[in-house]
Amino acid sequence: MPITADHIRATLTEYTDAHPEEKTALEFVHELIDEGIDVTSRKEFRGHATAGAVVVNGDGQALFIRHVALDRWLTPGGHLEREDTDLLGAALRELAEETGITLSVSPVQSYPVHIDVHPIPANDSKAEPEHRHLDFRYLFRLEGDQGVTLQEEEVSGYAWRNVDTITDETLRARVRASLRGATP
């Protein structure tokens, strides 16, 4: 069963219960869902959900990939697929697809460490106008030393970097807090 509006609504509620300071900023996502907008469809350009994986290894470093289409270093993630049944699973699927990491990775918590809403530039080759991603970012710990196998059509490189290099301040602070054992 594909990801439902109820699942997204419940995830938003769990997240904003943990981070009430973000409730107002994310209210428009509830409004889209209340209007019957399918935010799981990548053809919904007012905003559609994506799932991301912030992976931290035993050395406290975060995994970054070089995203081909955006030509930027990002954490793994991407669009939802019809076979995805929940957002956490979608984040794990994207991690596996882009990096080959499937073993010894576990979520730090059941809800996203961060939900980021950001603009995506128009992509003429995909006939996509500028639009917004509603990025549900989950935090994972990697135990052991599993190798990385890149999905070369979307990813051109990878690097393990200090979590201090995470550019989003909120995400960086929450990952740091998690590594210290505090509530992110």
Score class of each variant (00 low, 15 high):
89 G>W: 14
109 Q>K: 07
77 G>V: 11
140 F>M: 11
66 R>P: 02
68 V>M: 00
114 H>L: 03
120 I>N: 04
115 I>K: 10
122 A>R: 08
131 H>E: 01
90 A>G: 02
100 G>I: 11
73 W>S: 09
112 P>I: 00
91 A>T: 11
74 L>T: 08
87 L>Q: 09
127 A>Y: 15
102 T>A: 13
133 H>L: 03
140 F>S: 00
86 D>P: 03
82 R>F: 09
69 A>C: 03
135 D>C: 08
105 V>T: 05
84 D>A: 13
111 Y>P: 00
67 H>R: 14
136 F>V: 00
98 E>L: 08
116 D>F: 00
84 D>S: 12
121 P>V: 07
72 R>I: 03
132 R>N: 07
77 G>P: 13
126 K>E: 09
85 T>W: 09
101 I>T: 01
121 P>R: 09
71 D>Q: 08
105 V>C: 02
65 I>N: 04
94 E>A: 13
128 E>D: 09
92 L>G: 02
70 L>E: 14
88 L>P: 02
120 I>A: 04
119 P>E: 08
141 R>I: 09
87 L>R: 12
119 P>F: 05
75 T>Y: 12
71 D>Y: 03
116 D>I: 01
70 L>D: 13
137 R>Y: 01
87 L>W: 11
127 A>M: 12
121 P>F: 00
141 R>K: 09
102 T>F: 10
133 H>M: 01
72 R>K: 13
115 I>E: 03
89 G>E: 08
100 G>W: 13
79 H>K: 11
106 S>D: 05
129 P>S: 15
64 F>D: 02
124 D>V: 03
69 A>R: 14
105 V>P: 06
125 S>K: 13
107 P>R: 01
77 G>W: 11
73 W>R: 09
81 E>P: 10
102 T>L: 12
139 L>K: 01
66 R>W: 13
104 S>A: 15
90 A>F: 05
112 P>K: 03
107 P>S: 09
93 R>E: 10
76 P>D: 02
64 F>H: 05
129 P>T: 14
125 S>F: 07
124 D>H: 06
92 L>K: 06
125 S>W: 00
83 E>P: 02
74 L>C: 11
112 P>N: 04
68 V>L: 11
97 E>K: 15
71 D>T: 07
